[in-house]
Structures are given as structure tokens and as C-alpha cells.
């Protein structure tokens, strides 16, 4: 478990891992749902738990007031931690992506359905026979495209 202070620091770190922005107004990863998702994923993996804690501790050790620093400096600090603890940092990033993108509302912002994909799925219009005929006409016009098994036979 993280102290309140380090939990708030975790939120700030997450803000930089997946920043907000873009035309779709994507939110950053620095929200409670993602932080809790990361921490709950570590619950069944002691190694991941230690790894996540080590990232927060390393940032804190470098700059306790990390959240108050300009973005450029925060990025510089995180890149330093990434170099120092590549394996833990990689796992931390992986867990962040999983926690962030498992949220239906995030999928929805990217044009992917928020819903469970069964039973509804997606409506995809089937191509008409005419369209298939038109698209495949050049392929059919070139004739057979497999090789005969006669050893003297050339590729058709």
C-alpha cells in the first residue's frame, strides 16, 4: 500500500505516462480509476507490487515536490528513473496501459465500442456480389496462380 502522499505522487506520474490532449480530448491516466487499477493488478503479483512501489519511491527520492515541477523536468526525472530501473518501469508502463484502456469510456473516445462485444458486436456491411466481382476481376483475369506438381511444370 502507498501512503496518501505517495498515492498522490502516483497520480502525477500517471499524468505523464499517458498525458491528456488531442482532438478527441483524451483524459490523462492520472485519475483514481487508473491508479487503483494499477495497484489492484499488483495485488496478485508481489514482484509487480515491489516494482510499482520502487518507481514511486525513485521519483520521490529524486524530487519530492515532483508534482510542482514543470512538465519538462518531470519528463526528465521519469526518463532517469526509466534508465535506472528499466524492468520495473516497463512493468509499470504496461500496467498503466492495461488499467487505462480497460475503461470502456476510453475505448469509446477512440471510436471503439464501450460495450462488451458479445452479444452485440459491430455492424459491418457485407460487400455485394457486384463489388466482389469488380474487385476480384483483375485477379481472375490473370488466370490460375498455383503451381502444378508436375516436376517439369512451371508456376502457372
Amino acid at each position: 500500500m502507498l501512503t496518501d502522499k505517495k498515492y498522490r505522487l502516483l497520480l502525477t506520474i500517471l499524468d505523464e505516462i499517458i498525458p491528456a490532449g488531442g482532438e478527441r480530448r483524451m483524459p490523462s491516466a492520472g485519475v483514481k480509476a487508473v491508479a487503483d487499477g494499477v495497484l489492484s493488478a499488483t495485488a496478485c503479483s508481489p514482484a509487480s507490487m515491489v516494482g510499482v512501489a520502487s518507481i514511486v519511491d525513485a521519483v520521490f527520492a529524486r524530487k519530492p515536490e515532483f508534482a510542482d515541477r514543470p512538465v519538462e523536468e518531470r519528463i526528465r526525472i521519469l526518463k532517469g528513473v526509466e534508465r535506472e530501473l528499466p524492468q520495473s518501469f516497463g512493468e509499470f508502463v504496461r500496467l498503466t496501459y492495461m488499467a487505462y484502456y480497460s475503461r470502456p469510456e476510453i475505448r469509446s473516445l477512440l471510436g471503439v465500442g464501450a460495450h462488451a462485444v458479445h452479444p452485440e458486436g459491430y455492424v459491418v456491411e457485407r460487400e455485394s456480389k457486384e463489388l466482389f466481382d469488380k474487385l476480384t476481376a483483375p485477379v481472375r483475369a490473370r488466370g490460375p496462380a498455383y503451381r502444378t506438381t508436375d516436376p517439369r511444370g512451371e508456376a502457372e
Binding site: M26, V93, L110
Partner: peptide, 10 residues
């Protein structure tokens, strides 16, 4: 991660 992530996803 970071700004590159935003660019790639968007």
C-alpha cells in the same frame, strides 16, 4: 509513454 504515446494513439 509520454507525448509520443499521445501522438501514436491519436
Amino acid at each position: 509513454w509520454g507525448a509520443d504515446h499521445r501522438e501514436i494513439i491519436d
